[in-house]
Amino acid sequence: MSSIADNINSVTQRIEKATLEKGRKPHSVRLLAVSKTRQADELREAVAAGQQDFGENYLQEALDKIANLQDIPELRWHFIGPIQSNKTAQIASAFCWVHGVERLKIARRLNDQRDTALPPLNICLQVNIDNEPSKSGCSLNELPALVAAIAELPQLTLRGLMAIPDPERGEVALRKSFRAMNNALIQLRQDQPGAGPLDTLSMGMSDDLELAIGEGSTWVRVGTAVFGPRQQKS
């Protein structure tokens, strides 16, 4: 059975190969290890292999791991997915990235609850690119107004966009969705250059990271290919 270190090396090679094949700059795509349901000792194995960015979906589970791993200060914690209003204070305090802001109300709460002694919280807006009823995210039409409003919040840095396209639609549809996300980010840079760095596309997972990289992804969120088959959350 492959070790976590072997898995990280394999995923990194996939990322580098896809990046070079598409003529993109080396190291322009980063690996976010999705560590939900994983134990702290598994994360320590990943850290020993050079991984520093970890993505979590379940707040209390994440806070427990953050406390367990506080002896490793260089770790960067990313919260992924929709956020409930009663969770914003802890997320604003404990994380340095959020992939999944979809409403201005949540953005304002994160901004207001972010300690001014901390650097601004990096956020990506989640777009429901395939208009799936079961998924969170704003529409492409809602993006410009949301971006303009968030640009006024000093404790947030708007880094870009995040999406989880429907993998069941097949490769052609996936590629189209990834490309639409890239085009949306390019349009935002042109229309609202002062809104933030707008340098980030968080898209692509274990099975489709090459497609995402081919269409401009800068963060690929990988869980299974790093840690093995997902454990069920108890």
Rank of each mutant, 00 (worst) to 15 (best):
D207G: 09
A5M: 09
I8Q: 02
D112L: 10
A117C: 09
L31D: 05
F54K: 04
V172W: 00
A33N: 04
L63E: 11
M1I: 12
P167S: 07
I164M: 14
T200P: 07
L153N: 04
D53G: 08
I66Y: 03
K135Y: 01
T218S: 13
N7R: 11
V29S: 07
Q190W: 12
T224R: 07
P144A: 09
D207M: 05
L209T: 03
T19G: 05
A5D: 11
V222N: 01
Q126V: 13
R230C: 13
R230P: 15
A49Y: 05
V29Y: 02
A94R: 04
V34K: 01
Q190T: 08
Q190Y: 04
V226C: 01
G228W: 05
Q126T: 13
F178Q: 08
Q60M: 15
V172T: 14
Q39L: 15
L59R: 01
P120F: 03
L143M: 02
R175F: 01
S206D: 07
A89Y: 04
F79K: 03
A163D: 08
I72T: 14
I80K: 00
L185C: 08
L153H: 00
E16I: 14
L75Y: 08
R175D: 13
P154G: 03
K22H: 15
Q52A: 14
L209C: 08
K36L: 14
G196I: 10
E168G: 09
A173Y: 00
F95A: 07
R108W: 07
R14I: 15
Q84V: 11
G100R: 00
K176C: 12
D166P: 06
I80S: 07
L104Y: 00
M203G: 10
K65F: 11
L198P: 08
V34F: 06
Q84R: 10
F95H: 01
A117V: 12
E210T: 15
S206I: 10
Q126W: 05
S85Y: 02
G214R: 01
V34Q: 06
N57P: 12
S85C: 02
G50L: 13
K176N: 10
S2H: 05
G228E: 07
N9A: 15
N141F: 08
I164G: 00
I72L: 15
S28F: 03
Q126P: 07
I8D: 07
S177Q: 02
T224A: 15
D6Y: 06
